[in-house]
């Protein structure tokens, strides 16, 4: 298999996965009714990105074991990990990992903001929300993915930002997750990021 084949066939798939994670971190899945989770699982079961590595398969397996009882703690656990009001167990902010003191809105955040500026974008509530929340980084990646011309910027952003910290983020999820769903999404993200790294290395950019 040559790399150009991978690139061509991966685009839609990558977009799907980034969309999935964006929805997840934006909290869109928190209110998904129990019946709809079955449909979501069906969609996930036929995603090649998930079937192609151990972490993805493990995640799907986790979700296949889901019951209505496992749904209830999902939101609480999601909040414990990413929202609060307690100390965050797996902060969703890049600067929590990149800044040497783990503080938000630092120089690391500004670098992310500048990347958005370069592409003519900004966080809607700039200054009110740290620009390096994973939700915004995922949305930005989707924006870059949508155009072949932005490939270089995309790879630069991935290398300088998301791929630099998301492994640590996933490790914290694995360590602290108490819900089958948050753990499954942690696995999914970890597996998908491995693919992204592999893809970028393969492209030699």
């Amino acid at each position: 298999m040559n790399h150009s084949e991978i690139k061509h066939s991966c685009l839609e798939e990558r977009m799907f996965m980034y969309q999935l994670f964006l929805h997840y971190y934006r909290g869109d899945l928190l209110k998904l009714p129990a019946a709809e989770w079955g449909k979501l699982l069906e969609i996930l079961e036929c995603q090649p990105a998930l079937q192609s590595n151990d972490w993805g398969r493990k995640a799907v397996l986790q979700l296949q074991n889901m019951t209505t009882q496992t749904l209830e703690p999902f939101e609480y656990d999601f909040n414990r990990l990413f929202v609060g009001p307690n100390k965050l167990l797996a902060s969703p902010f890049e600067s929590s990992y990149q800044n040497f003191e783990g503080t938000v809105m630092q120089a690391e955040t500004l670098k992310v903001r500048n990347f958005y500026y370069y592409e003519g974008l900004q966080v809607a509530n700039e200054g009110g929300l740290p620009d390096d929340h994973i939700q915004f980084e995922l949305e930005f990646i989707l924006h870059l993915l949508s155009s072949e011309k932005k490939k270089e910027a995309l790879h630069l952003f991935l290398e300088k930002h998301l791929l630099k910290w998301v492994d640590q983020h996933c490790a914290r999820i694995e360590e602290h997750s108490q819900s089958l769903i948050t753990l499954a999404f942690g696995y999914m993200l970890k597996g998908f990021i491995l693919l992204e790294k592999s893809l970028i290395e393969g492209e030699g950019l």
Binding site: Q19, D28, I43, P48, Y116, V123, F136, E139, H143
Partner: peptide, 27 residues
């Protein structure tokens, strides 16, 4: 399959495709 997946995901969540115009995000 991917395209089907993407569309289904958006339909499932009752949302437009999450892109640059998504609510609460980048503008």
């Amino acid at each position: 399959t991917f395209i089907k997946g993407s569309v289904s995901l958006s339909a499932l969540l009752g949302l437009g495709a999450a892109g640059t115009q998504a609510p609460k995000g980048l503008i």
